[in-house]
Design a protein around this nucleic acid. Structure first.
Length: 1124
RNA sequence: GGGCCUGUAGCUCAGGUGGUUAGAGCGCUACACUGAUAAUGUAGAGGUCCGUGGUUCGAGUCCACGCAGGCCCA
């Protein structure tokens, strides 16, 4: 039986399947973990995917990255447990269910019960689990699929509740406001998803107003600010300018009241408010009612100069007065001069930017207290001004004689037309219009006009939405900002910029984490409150809840526990039915919100182990993670929530190393989408190429954090170039090893120092490769690791070592030289298996098994072996440099041969290499043999300076001289370029030479210039990279004969092949007599020819019975070959 | 609008701390090799290093402003 299986053709996809089956039936993954029991742990956290959609090609990418480092660390001796997980809650699940049932959120509770709805979600969420598991296995992502954490699991949710309670106890969980899209008509907040429905944004004509804000303490100085929502003006509490923008003070008249005044606006917006003609008119000539209003620019300032300016409240309603620093000019980074006045009016209650800016700058907003003492905005949830504001407006209407389409009561001031008034009615006046007229009359409006813009509408009611403060539960992340930033600095981010930039900046501009979601399928907020909001209870475990339920039953608020006799389900609607008892005896109802699903996944380090209720030791041993990896889009998702919870609750990072990988785009750089049909099916790709080439391509083509333009051609190229070459190399080894019955035995191998130089060279390269690869894996740089392995395999091992050592494998008996060759090649291949195993786990294992099949005591799988550390004793950098010179010289000779049209089979006498440094000669002498055999020359001669025939060139060493001379470098260069033969000789002799630079004498030393030999007169010369080679092209008779002999051998070998002979078959050759030179060649090189062709006899005959005519290029020759 | 990433040959990508001929693989063209052969080698063509300014004796590399594509956030 053959010791090393040979393969005619390799089907990579079936290697994947076969090895997968082998892993499964032998429990290799489990063994790779169990083997390391007691070893130090290396912790990896799986970011849970959602199984309610099918996996895509980008998941292959993400999972391959995770797998690589877990496998590598296992090889390095760590125990790496990898618990899988599933993300199961959230909006996408709900939307999918709604789509399938043909319902909307409004139907929940009427057409379908919450219970049934959530049941449906639970069923849907794992729908594609099998497909995911299948992909996971097929791409070789080793993760424990048998015991995954599932975020809807009661144990998981219980851990979440525990964490929430911890936050609550630390006073980090609070209820507050956030500005959200809100539909007064539907009485509900809208998610950004709902707002992105087609048709939501609609062009509408609204009344826009440029209001005049009177600067305090000035007679008639006003700041102009523009808004398309005049109804927000009573809530104004600040104005924002752009610090770097230019603003002007303009002396003019109010177009409605004709009063003289000075207004402030952005310089760029002047033309939008003033007729050019106005600049030419005299202010004094103005008469009230003139169409063209004169103006004069008084002053220009930077926005910064306006900061802190105080102004009078636009609507001085007593209930709305605010303490300082309200009604102040502040800076806003979002202010532009694209429209409006370049000054933005801020109403804290009705804009997200406004709310954020004012909160950050500690400026109060316009709110009033409701009966419970809670702050509320002055527009209620129906979209209507509170009565006292209505009353104020009504009074003003009467004062100014404003007539509307009907008599408006104080309860009729809706900010948008939510009562469906007839807008066609000529007398119809919206609240915006009424406000505008009031302001016009009071000299508080500079310009009022209809303005068409895009405004979002509620997709259910078609009515305009408002940005409105809604109550939400928050985690006070801002309280931990410093710690979050500090801990982040200790994390190794790949790439670094994601950590310092995207993530770091996000932390710097942190806002509190809005935890609330008004939905159905998710983790319920474990908070119960009384109606007045004065009593709050946060529940941190099932046991605690049970106890509280018991108390509630005792108090008569509940009749029975909903969990009686069954496993508690902590989802809605069950938790909603629970009414608890407050300390004061009040009924406590659960706050109806669910929590952000990102909390679910961010809490996985704890909840996956049901910590702290179980597995405390396991948790401690695996916290924090050494490594996580996920898409860069998770920066503010999973990465953030993991980090935040760890820092806030455990004063720790959650992960030490993280790779944030980029996107997988189609080959044209477009986003993949199923809808556009450019999505690549991972299963199809696996079928075509198998898992290894796919993984290798994805990780070697570009760094994982760069976007990958996925191209199947690229996978094919990797397969051909890398795997194909490696496979060829193995086949070459197997073919001859089997013929010689060679089996690698570690015990009896030839010591490396006794092996030929070529062997020591490739083994030195191999050790260097091990170092380089290990270093790259340690630094989480998988791409350089793969590139190094590829380069070694293709360029060094296959294209140099095997090519040069080829003859050693197929000639003669199994002597020491041959054995050394086998052992060397074997060692390279086996080591490659280990180095590539993390990236190409199937092929590496397959090759490993082929190599070790006949060895006793070999590991069952490469994944159960230890990483092989480099043997530094074997590294011989000088030898590596020598061989590199050999490769470069060979390349030069090849190019010379081509130029001279001399094929490699024609031996040539010698090459000449000019050497200016003795070391260079020594380096080359080491590798004369490989050079000579590679380029087929008899000898290498070196010419040094003493010959006097070298033509040299000189140029300054810019790096050295540039530092010395700086600005005078140009002159130095010119001076050195002028040097000829004598000067070069002089500096070489004396080690230095004087030049004149700018009339000053300077000494240039030999180290500061670069001298190269570029030509040998009368020779065919090539040079590159500082090496020059000359080729002796004279053909002596003997060389010619040898050339013919080699040609002859070549033709006979072809013939043998054509005749279907085996490599070891012996033959007899008859050749017809021919020209003298041919006959001489065959006679003189008879032994050589016989050895090469395995001929027992080579006879020259005058006539041959059944001749084969060989085409020898310049002549033909009749021969007969027969097997003996 | 903000933050971050990317932009080098037809394609995919390398190009520490600035240094004078900008590289590799694929593809293309030509040639060679023919006992690794559905393999391999060599050579050639192919470049506005996204643009514009600036710093410097010297910029693919540093700075500023842009442009294009992408991600996240408003």
């Amino acid at each position: 039986m053959k010791k090393y299986q040979e393969y005619k053709q390799v089907a990579y996809p079936s290697i994947g399947e076969d090895i997968l089956a082998f892993w499964k039936s032998n429990g290799i993954f489990e063994k790779s973990v169990a083997n390391r029991q007691g070893a130090p742990t290396y912790t990896f956290y799986e970011g849970p995917p959602s199984a309610n959609g099918t996996p895509g090609i980008h998941h292959v990418m993400a999972r391959a990255i995770k797998d690589v480092f877990c496998r590598y660390k296992t090889q390095k001796g760590f125990q790496v447990k990898r618990k899988g997980g599933w993300d199961t809650h959230g909006l996408p699940v709900e939307l999918q269910v709604e789509k399938e049932l043909g319902i909307t959120k409004e139907d929940i509770g009427s057409k379908i019960s919450v219970e049934a709805y959530n049941q449906k979600c639970r069923e849907t969420v794992m729908r594609f689990k099998d497909e995911w598991d299948d992909l996971t296995e097929k791409i070789g992502y080793w993760v424990d699929l048998n015991d995954p954490y599932i975020t809807f699991d009661a144990n998981y949710v219980e851990s979440l509740w525990y964490l929430l309670k911890k936050l609550y106890e630390k006073d980090l969980l609070y209820k507050g406001y956030t500005i959200q899209p809100y539909s007064p008509a539907a009485g509900t907040g809208l998610s950004s998803h709902e707002l992105n429905q087609p048709g939501c944004y609609r062009d509408v004509k609204d009344t826009s107003i440029t209001a005049q804000f009177k600067v305090q303490g000035e007679k008639d100085l006003y700041i102009l600010a523009w808004t398309t929502t005049p109804w927000t003006l009573p809530s104004n509490s600040a104005l924002a300018i752009g610090e770097k923008l230019d603003y002007i003070y303009v002396r003019t008249f109010n177009p409605y009241t004709f009063e003289p005044e000075t207004v402030i606006l952005a310089k760029e917006r002047l033309s939008a408010y003033f007729h050019p003609e106005g600049a030419k008119r005299e202010l004094d000539d103005y008469k009230p009612g003139d169409k063209i209003i004169p103006y004069q620019i008084l002053e220009q300032v930077k926005g910064k100069a306006l900061l802190g300016l105080q102004y009078e409240q636009l609507f001085p309603i007593p209930e709305l007065s605010l303490p300082d620093p309200a009604f102040t000019v502040i800076a806003g980074d979002y202010v532009t001069t694209e429209d409006g006045t370049g000054i933005v009016h801020l109403a804290k209650a009705f804009g997200a930017d406004d709310f954020r800016t004012l909160t950050q700058q500690h400026i109060p907003g316009v709110f009033v207290k409701d009966e419970r003492g809670q702050e509320i905005p002055i527009v209620d949830k129906k979209g209507k001004f509170l009565p006292f504001v209505g009353k104020y407006l009504k009074t003003k209407m009467e004062a100014h004689g404003i007539q509307a389409h009907k008599i408006l009561s104080e309860n009729d001031f809706y900010v948008k037309n939510y009562t469906l008034e007839d807008e066609e009615n000529k007398a119809y006046k919206s609240t915006d219009v009424i406000i505008s007229i009031i302001l016009k009359n009071e000299n508080k409006a500079f310009k009022v006009e209809k303005y068409e813009h895009s405004y979002p509408h509620c997709w259910r009611t078609d009515m305009p939405i408002l940005y409105y403060p809604l109550e939400s539960w928050f985690i006070k992340t801002t309280a931990y900002k410093e710690q979050l930033v500090a801990h982040n600095r200790t994390i190794n981010w790949k790439p670094e910029s994601t950590g310092t930039g995207r993530f770091g900046n996000w932390l710097e501009n942190l806002v509190d984490w809005n935890l609330s979601r008004s939905r159905y399928w998710g983790t319920p907020l474990p908070i119960w409150r009384n109606k007045a909001g004065t009593q709050t209870r946060c529940i941190g475990s099932i046991a605690e809840l049970q106890a509280e339920i018991d108390r509630a039953i005792e108090a008569g608020f509940m009749t029975a526990s909903p969990f009686k006799g069954k496993t508690p389900d902590l989802h809605r609607p069950y938790v909603d039915e629970i009414v608890l008892v407050g300390d004061n005896g009040d009924q406590l109802f659960r706050e109806p919100d669910l929590i952000d699903v990102w909390f679910d996944s961010g809490a996985m380090p704890y909840a996956q182990w049901h910590y702290p209720f179980e597995n405390e030791e396991l948790f401690n041993a695996n916290y924090p993670a050494d490594f996580i990896a996920e898409g860069v889009d998770q920066t503010r998702g999973w990465f953030f929530t993991l980090h935040t919870l760890a820092v806030m609750l455990f004063d720790s990072v959650a992960f030490k190393n993280v790779i944030a990988n980029g996107l997988v785009l189609d080959k044209n750089g477009n986003k993949m989408s199923k809808r556009l049909g450019n999505a690549v099916d991972p299963f199809q790709t696996l079928k075509e190429f198998g898992p290894d080439a796919l993984r290798w391509y994805m990780l070697s083509n570009a760094n994982p954090w760069d976007n990958l333009k996925f191209n199947k051609e690229g996978v094919a190229e990797v397969q051909r170039r890398f795997f194909g070459t490696l496979q060829n190399t193995y086949n070459f080894f197997a073919l001859y090893a089997n013929l010689d019955d060679f089996v690698y035995r570690k015990e009896s191998k030839i010591p490396v120092q006794d092996r030929p130089e070529l062997d020591r060279w490739i083994l030195s390269k191999l050790q260097s490769l091990i170092q380089e690869t290990g270093k790259a894996y340690e630094a989480y740089d998988v791409t350089p690791a793969t590139r190094g392995i590829m380069n070694f395999t293709v360029d060094q091992l296959s294209n140099w070592y095997v090519r040069l050592a080829r003859k050693r494998f197929w000639r003669g008996e199994l002597n020491a030289d041959k054995q050394a060759a086998y052992e060397t090649l074997y060692e390279c291949l086996e080591t490659l298996c280990k180095l590539m195993a993390p990236v190409a786990p199937f092929y590496a294992d397959w090759l490993f098994k082929n190599l070790t099949a006949s060895q006793t005591g070999a590991a069952q799988s490469v994944h159960l072996t230890d990483w092989q550390d480099a043997d530094e004793n074997l590294i011989q950098k000088p030898l590596e440099s020598s061989m590199q010179l050999a490769q470069e010289i060979s390349s030069l000779v090849h190019s010379l041969r081509k130029k001279e049209k001399l094929k490699v089979r024609q031996p040539l006498q010698k090459i000449l290499i000019p050497v200016l440094q003795p070391e260079t000669q020594a380096y080359i002498q080491h590798v004369e043999e490989p050079i000579k055999s590679e380029v087929n020359v008899k000898s290498i001669e070196y010419i040094d300076d003493t010959s006097g025939i070298l033509v040299k060139s000189i140029k300054p060493n810019f790096a050295v001289l540039g530092k010395r001379f700086g600005p005078k470098m140009k002159l130095v260069n010119q001076a050195i370029q002028k040097w000829g033969k004598e000067e070069i000789a002089a500096i070489e002799k004396a080690g230095q030479l004087k030049i004149l630079v700018d009339e000053a004498e300077e000494i240039i030393s030999l180290e500061e210039v670069l001298i190269q030999s570029q030509d040998i007169p009368g020779w065919s010369v090539a040079s590159d990279n500082g090496i020059t080679v000359a080729l002796d092209v004279t053909l002596t008779t003997e060389l010619k004969e040898e050339g013919i002999a080699r040609d002859f051998v070549n033709r006979i070998q072809n013939l043998r092949k054509d005749l279907g002979m085996e490599v070891q078959d012996k033959i007899r050759i008859q050749a017809a007599a021919s020209e003298q030179v041919v006959t001489d060649a065959l006679t003189h090189f008879s032994d050589y020819i016989k050895t090469e062709t395995q001929a027992m006899a080579l006879e020259l005959a005058n006539e041959i019975i059944h001749p084969t005519v060989l085409d020898m290029d310049e002549f033909t020759l009749s021969v007969a070959v027969e097997k003996v």
